[in-house]
Design a protein around this nucleic acid. Structure first.
Length: 474
RNA sequence: CGAGGAGUAGCGCAGUUUGGUAGCGCGCUUGGUUCGGGACCAAGAGGUCGUGGGUUCAAAUCCCGUCUCCUCGACCA
């Protein structure tokens, strides 16, 4: 059987999903564990996925008019303490530099867990007039949060991300941008990651430390658990006031700006793996796959086989497809399994028989179906890649749709999440009821639905203020 | 920090009960035959047994200390 060894070494996909996940990530050589606890070394294949995500995301930011900038890794401790809620939220998980240059520092330096404070500090210097607004920036960088438990990509002490930060003259504009970026993320998830998401506002409990409102996009994993795949935050004037981000308006009055921020991280790679992957390993959506098409020569030492493969590869490359010819000395069976495990969307098998008959064999990773095609049918390959995108999104969307259930009581909610569902339920808005849900069903409020169509709170029975998507989360 | 488990070759493990030559599988190296779903043969390289101390003629093995990692909880993108 195909992949028997691999499958036998990993835990069952449904019953022990996190272990499956970790094994797959390590075995497919996306990452290694780093020497420091909770850190990962991202290998070239894994990093190439991130580079593709970054390229696609960057293009969208540029189109939206956001420019890239860079701010320092180390932040003075005093910056962190300027916004009360912010420091309270992040204090437990920051790494602090106390010594440098062989002496103890007068003021400790925080390794950034996020850059609101240092960017707020610089915005305070850069913004003077209404003409300076809006100021919209993004940075690609690494951040560090000393988490207690970690898992590659999903939660690591250090991770790569983009964080966008903007300041506007009015709250309405900043709030609108918060939603714009949320929708940008949603579109990105759909078209680049082929991953359906739920978007919406977060509860007070789940909101970013120091924000007025937080919005999130949540993706459903194979096992029905939820993964926060991106967030946007509206800060109001909280950070502007803490860092003196003031400007003179058209009326000559001195006013505080309104800030917002948004970010997605390498966690998206984890989301991809857990959304699309199967027992054979990864399934990567073509837009982010480091290799979109792998060509496996059969009997590659025979006259003309490698030449035919290389020539086909050249044509595909010409058409803008990321292609690789696996001319290594491994057996074809090995190569099939290796590249399936690594999630390459399309494999082309090309041997003496095909060359003679002017054919090639196409294998699509999402359904594991094989079809014949005319040798050199580049457009056919392009169509197939396109079809894989549609099909991946379609089946993930269908899975999510079929796994959203409604509940009117805690018992129903528990039953729902136990069955691997997202559960829609009414909520009165009280923190106590939210905590009760966590305690009773280990489920948390992921996002609030736009409409409220449940009459009562599932917990206390009082009139519902919101309809909430509850789920167990990673 | 609470509970449980594990440290022996690059990886996965056996050996520990009952002290006595450092083992197995995979991987790696070399040569050859192969190649349409994880091929085969032959030869070879590779180990401070986490670490400190103790008992002993003799410790991977017994005793005491210590460090690290993993899983589950509380915290979190």
């Amino acid at each position: 059987m195909a992949n028997e060894k691999f499958v036998s070494q990993i835990a069952d996909i449904e019953s022990d999903f996190p272990q499956w996940y970790t094994d797959v990530v390590i075995k497919t050589k996306l990452v290694d564990y780093g020497p420091v606890k909770g850190t990962m070394v991202i290998r070239p294949y894994g990093y190439a996925i991130w580079e593709n995500i970054r390229r696609e995301m960057d293009a969208r930011f540029k189109r939206a008019g956001v420019e890239n900038a860079y701010f320092p890794l180390l932040i003075p401790m005093s910056f962190m303490t300027k916004e009360a809620e912010h420091v309270e939220g992040f204090a437990p998980e920051v790494a602090v530099v106390t010594h440098a240059g062989g002496t103890k520092l007068e003021e400790p330096l925080v390794v950034r867990p996020t850059s609101e404070t240092i960017i707020g500090h610089m915005m305070g210097k850069w913004v003077e007039s209404w003409r300076d607004l809006p100021l919209r920036m993004n940075q690609w960088c690494n951040v560090m949060r000393w988490e207690k438990t970690t898992r590659p990509f999903l939660r690591t002490s250090e991770f790569l991300w983009q964080e966008g930060h903007s300041v506007y003259a009015t709250g309405e504009e900043a709030e609108a941008e918060t939603l714009n970026m949320l929708h940008l993320y949603e579109e990105f998830a759909k078209n680049v990651l082929c991953m359906p998401v739920l978007i919406g506002r977060k509860t007070e409990k789940e909101k970013f430390a120091g924000a007025v409102a937080t919005f999130g996009m949540e993706a459903m994993m194979h096992d029905g658990k939820s993964l926060q795949a991106g967030t946007t935050h509206y800060m109001g004037q909280n950070f502007a006031k803490a860092f003196g981000v003031q400007f003179t308006g058209t009326d000559g009055a001195l006013k505080y700006g309104y800030t917002m921020s948004y970010g997605v991280s390498t966690r998206l790679i984890g989301a991809l793996i857990m959304t699309h992957g199967d027992q054979r390993g990864l399934i990567l959506p073509p837009p982010v796959a480091p290799v979109e098409v792998v060509i496996v020569p059969i009997a590659q030492k025979k006259e003309g086989v490698l030449e035919a493969c290389n020539s086909l590869a050249a044509s595909l490359k010409e058409a803008g497809i990321r292609v690789k010819v696996d001319d290594s000395d491994n057996s074809p069976g090995w190569k099939f399994n290796e590249w399936e495990m690594k999630g390459v969307p399309v494999r082309i098998e090309l041997g003496p028989r095909d060359i003679e008959g002017g054919k090639m064999l196409l294998f699509r990773r999402d359904t594991c179906e094989k079809t014949d095609a005319a040798l050199g049918d580049i457009e056919g390959v392009q169509r197939l890649l396109q079809d894989i995108c549609v099909s991946l999104f379609g089946r993930a969307k269908e899975r999510m749709r079929s796994r959203i259930v409604n509940a009117e009581s805690l018992e129903e909610l528990l039953q729902g999440v136990n069955g691997g569902n997202f559960v829609r339920a009414g909520w009165c808005g009280d923190r106590a009821c939210e905590d009760k849900v966590k305690e009773f069903a280990q489920a948390t409020a992921r996002v609030l639905d736009e409409k409220c169509d449940h009459p009562t709170c599932l917990c206390c029975g009082k009139p519902a203020k919101h309809t909430v998507f509850f789920a167990r989360a990673y």
